[in-house]
Amino acid sequence: MSCKDNLDKLLPGKSRTWTKFKDQDRVIVPAADLTETMRTLRDQCSMDMLVDVTGVDWLDYEGAKDRFEVVYCLLNVESGERLVVSVMLNEPDLEVDSMTSLYKSADWLEREVYDMFGITFKGHPNPKRLLLPELFAAFPLRKDYPVQGRGERHNFPVITRAES
């Protein structure tokens, strides 16, 4: 039985949007249901690996209703079945439950999403930036952030020949 039927049977009556792309199931769940859904998927549908967590900024995209999407890619290691779970978020409420309690691999992946999109994860054990310097003030993968930055890279002291 596929994950899709399984999930609909185990958690009936929840609002969920299923789509399919190249034989791969994708589901959008409300942010409030995320932990429950993921827990069910892990414990009862044997989705035992969280392959990736990433974000999408749908700003100005044709036909898009929500701004941010957080994407979780799951894998059943034994059967090879995959499922993409995503959550839609809008400003100003950019917070979603952390999956670190279910999957250890979510730790750094969620930190990266925070780093690039500024989405915070409730209950994350170490909510810091992963790649950018601690003092970086913006979230560079948002679509309203200029490609060349806002001058962050120029704020360093200049060492001249006379003083080095």
């Binding site: 200029p146 930055g149 962050e152 060492i159 020949r161 080095s164």
Partner: peptide, 15 residues
């Protein structure tokens, strides 16, 4: 690499 993170020439910061 004219992006937000790459320094545009090290001579801006060291001789």
């Amino acid at each position: 690499f004219d992006t937000y993170s790459v320094v545009q020439g090290i001579d801006r910061f060291i001789p």
